[in-house]
């Protein structure tokens, strides 16, 4: 029997606008697998899409922030850092 321990980092993600409506939640805690390197936005996005397949309609258009700064797929998410996920902005 494989007894390897699976590590996870809990990442809190806030969702806005169409991303919130497609998921029906404004906030979700995701358990993101830790694979011997820091968790990145790409990992968070993967976990988010697995949890909410309906987000696929926004696909590559989805934007991410760590704290209050835009992030790209390589941005590291430290334990406890909040993530935001949203569609292209349309203020003004």
């Amino acid at each position: 029997m494989n007894s390897s321990v699976i590590h996870e980092q809990v990442v809190d993600v806030q969702l806005f606008a169409l991303a919130r409506e497609l998921t029906s939640v404004a906030r979700v805690s995701l358990e993101v697998p830790v694979e011997g390197r820091p968790v990145t936005i790409a990992d968070v996005q993967h976990a988010l899409m697995a949890r909410f397949p309906r987000l696929a309609s926004l696909g590559a258009k989805l934007l991410f922030a760590v704290g209050t700064q835009y992030a790209d797929e390589n941005t590291v998410v430290q334990p406890g850092e909040p993530v935001a996920c949203f569609p292209p902005v349309s203020g003004g």
Partner: peptide, 27 residues
């Protein structure tokens, strides 16, 4: 400032059209 605000600031608008439908605006 207005160009960058529209490009970067995380704010979203939803249209309420005269036919009764609603639609998020995103570029």
């Amino acid at each position: 400032m207005i160009d960058e605000l529209k490009r970067r600031v995380p704010i979203w608008k939803k249209e309420n059209w005269s036919d009764g439908s609603q639609e998020w605006v995103h570029p």
